[in-house]
Amino acid sequence: MNLTLKVWRQNGPTDKGQFKTYEARDISSDASFLEMLDIVNEGLESKGEEPIGFESDCREGICGVCGMVVNGAAHHSTPRATLCQVHMREFKDGDTVTLEPFRSKAFPVLKDLIVDRSAFDRVITAGGYISVRAGSAPDAHVTPIPKVLSDRSMDAAACIGCGACVAACPNAAAMLFTGAKVTHLNLLPQGQPERYKRVQAMVEQLEHEGFGHCSNHQECVRACPKGVPLDVISLMNRDFIGAQFKLRS
């Protein structure tokens, strides 16, 4: 199949950037979206042009490194899939496809479709840890956890930190990401010692990075390749409000 790509090209963080048009010729419908870009880049390189910058690592939907906005949707509109899991059979021959980087003040563009997501790392560093007894590994099942809680916690822990929630949110908020990280630990017994300190620190860092607020549009939830539920945001809100009382008593 043949496609026309409208791709955001930006030489570096300070470059203004612009859309450029490329043709993708003779692409197999079995190719993945990223393989299609590899083929286009090979063509560009053979002509001595600068290849299109994009990130990927595992290419099987687990690392969270890939990601861009395809036709206005983070990771393309395919439900529950990272961009590396999207295949060309989802497009039609002759389609025009628009490729943009994740847009957010907190994710500055480094080059073309690559953005700097280290704001997420700083949010995690602020509180995404637990206190454990150092020494020999504890026996399994030493801490009983109700099934309902472990299920909700694991739903949150499915977050791979790809940033699609920020990209899809009309307010460029990172509430789903931060909510997932807070909830994942705050629901479990192991997370209790730092529960309120954690939410306070992570939300403060979140504010500091310049992300927006939550309007409950639910765009993030639909864009999330891992199906992290909206509830993680209200659970984070609950603990953040609680922290205002608990941290002062």
Binding site: F19, G72, T98, R103, E219, A223
Partner: peptide, 9 residues
């Protein structure tokens, strides 16, 4: 701003 915006929900 995005050039195109797809609304999931």
């Amino acid at each position: 701003a995005y050039r195109s915006k797809y609304w999931f929900a």
